[in-house]
Nucleic acid binder design. Structure first.
Lengths: 344, 344
DNA sequence: CTGAAAGCGCTTACAG
DNA sequence: CTGAAAGCGCTTACAG
């Protein structure tokens, strides 16, 4: 800027005025400045600007796993809105590692991002402290944090699972296996609660063995499915608590030479582009991923702009059951079509 | 920092020294400083630091589509390496829009990122200029740029496609449909070239109608497959030039009530987690996504550190054919199993 | 081991 | 419409 000012024989103020359009500049001076800018190849320095203005025009986005279509769909929507509003995105993935998550929050805070959108991992207490220390506007995605008041956009996990459950029950299923997510997580607990709700509602007794602990990843779901399907009394249907675990379920089924939906019905949580291209076309609960991302971005921008003040706002969105072909009708009371396992 | 210095009754230099460990500080003063830091809740300001040092410790990563598992797998690997080396990542997605891509490059340059990793979209000339103007170390992923010397990591697209082609030909296929990517792109052209290479090598005549122009997206591939399979002489196998187009292929096949591999063989490019969980388990060319990302990150870091100087280094990785179950053996010369379409 | 001071490249009242 | 100058929060020779 100084160099430009000298070359154009104007003050540094004038250069700033033409670069940013913050002040009226006479045509001749403007032209001199523009020529100097081209000649020198001057490019504004956003770092210096940030130091002065106290704003970086960047938002920190913290997610569990960039490899999971749920997150990437949400992030895509977030970025679109944010970019249009003049923000950049620093993306941090923590692989559901709590320590890494806190690292990232600290780094983002040091870098003076203008706000945080986070889909949190792990226990509330720790995270709450980390978030409080940033003194940054934050919007939570996918879950809320007890004792921490801020904007959030979540979905109705409980009723979503209830709706798949009702669907399966309406197809005659009574023994429904459930592969949970991490029960330390909000979504993990809520989804399991929805399962239990539906059982109660239908007057079906809970059965220990039918609920298998998963970790939202494919490998555990694989093992869980094996356990489920080799047990003495196996289920006629399985619900997976997220998209990645469905992979494990299907692989385990392949391994056992069980086919879906003939031998076993499967329903998932989260939709993804491949879900209705291959077989079986997966019946699943689609989360409104675009809306989640857009809302999160809007909430944050309004906070930063000061258009929104006071108490945290909660946006609660609904999942949508996509009935495809991975669940079949079954005669209530019948056990799974035998495959020579009757001896068990 | 000033506040801390005053509270601890030391100079600002001393505070800097204990925060960064850049200089030895006597124990008592160190303790005074640390106490003051806690009391005040001081957090270092990375923006100010960057202005002074001229380094932001952030890398710009520019990709086409965050929704595509190929990119996300690569980005995941990039981030892991970069994070360990103390860098953050500003991720920019352009949806294969050239203008947006240039916008992003400009923004990243203004923000003074220390380097750029980009998987480029569009024509060379424009992009080359945009990149040159940044005066930043850049590493290209997925393609090279004529006339622009820099580090790059690419894969052998041509021989990769040749290997699927050989495989299909060995299964007896002679009429092989090819759904290309954008021919304006390096990978699009190379993959098509591999197809033609293999045809020539096997002494099979090229046939216009068997090559369909795609755009790397699912929708075009859907249409292309429809055209391919409703033509008078339809192929016995289809190759898709990337992962997303396979979705379109499978959907079109579903629509036509054609099943794979019984009625038609399908092979893809890019592997993804769902490819071997659902049916048909997809035969595809897996790109070494982790290696691509890791190498790209390493190349860039070495450049920034000054450990690497001079001419751009090219890392060329090989794709790997994953034979699964979506291609079947066929009697050479036979046309596709008729489905009452003989009248055509 | 420690401090005073310059300077990174901007923005922005203040004064003209 | 224009400029001189302070200051954002750091780092880092330089001097002691």
């Amino acid at each position: 800027m100084l160099a430009v000012a000298k070359a154009a024989k104007v003050s540094i103020f004038t250069v700033s005025a033409v670069v940013n359009g913050t002040s009226v500049v006479s045509d001749q001076r403007r032209e001199r400045v523009e020529k100097a800018i081209r000649a020198i190849g001057y490019k504004r320095n956003a770092v210096a600007r940030s130091l002065k203005t106290g704003r970086t025009q960047t938002i920190g986005v913290v997610i569990g796993d960039i490899t999971n279509p749920f997150y990437t769909d949400v992030v895509a929507a977030i970025q679109q809105v944010l970019y249009r509003a003049g923000y950049g995105v620093m993306l941090c993935c923590n692989d559901r590692d709590v320590t890494l998550q806190e690292d990232h929050i600290a780094v983002l805070r040091d870098r003076r991002v203008d706000g945080l959108i986070i889909s949190p991992t792990g226990e509330d207490t720790h995270l709450r402290k980390a978030l409080e220390q940033t003194h940054l506007p934050v919007v939570l995605v996918d879950r809320i944090l007890t004792g921490f008041d801020c904007d959030a956009v979540i979905i109705e996990n409980r009723s979503a699972v209830r709706s798949v459950m009702r669907y399966l029950i309406s197809l005659g299923h009574r023994r429904i296996g459930f592969i949970s997510g991490l029960l330390g997580s909000f979504t993990g607990r809520e989804r399991l609660a929805g399962y239990n709700d539906a059982l109660k509602e239908a007057g079906i007794a809970r059965e220990q063995g039918l609920v298998q602990l998963g970790n939202f990843r494919s490998d555990e779901a694989y093992e869980a499915t094996l356990r489920l399907m080799t047990a003495a009394k196996s289920p006629t249907a399985i619900i997976s608590s997220n998209n990645q675990m469905v992979i494990g379920v299907m692989k385990a089924l392949n391994h056992l030479k069980l086919s879906c939906p003939e031998d076993i019905s499967v329903a998932g949580f989260d939709d993804f582009p491949w879900a209705d291209a291959f077989r079986p076309q997966l019946t699943t609960i689609a989360q409104p991923v675009r809306a989640i991302g857009e809302q999160a971005a809007h909430l944050l921008i309004e906070r930063i702009d000061g258009r929104a003040k006071g108490k945290g706002r909660k946006v609660i969105l609904a999942g949508e059951l996509k009935v495809r072909e991975s669940c079949r009708r079954v005669i209530p009371g019948a056990t799974r079509k035998s495959r020579g396992e009757a001896a068990q």
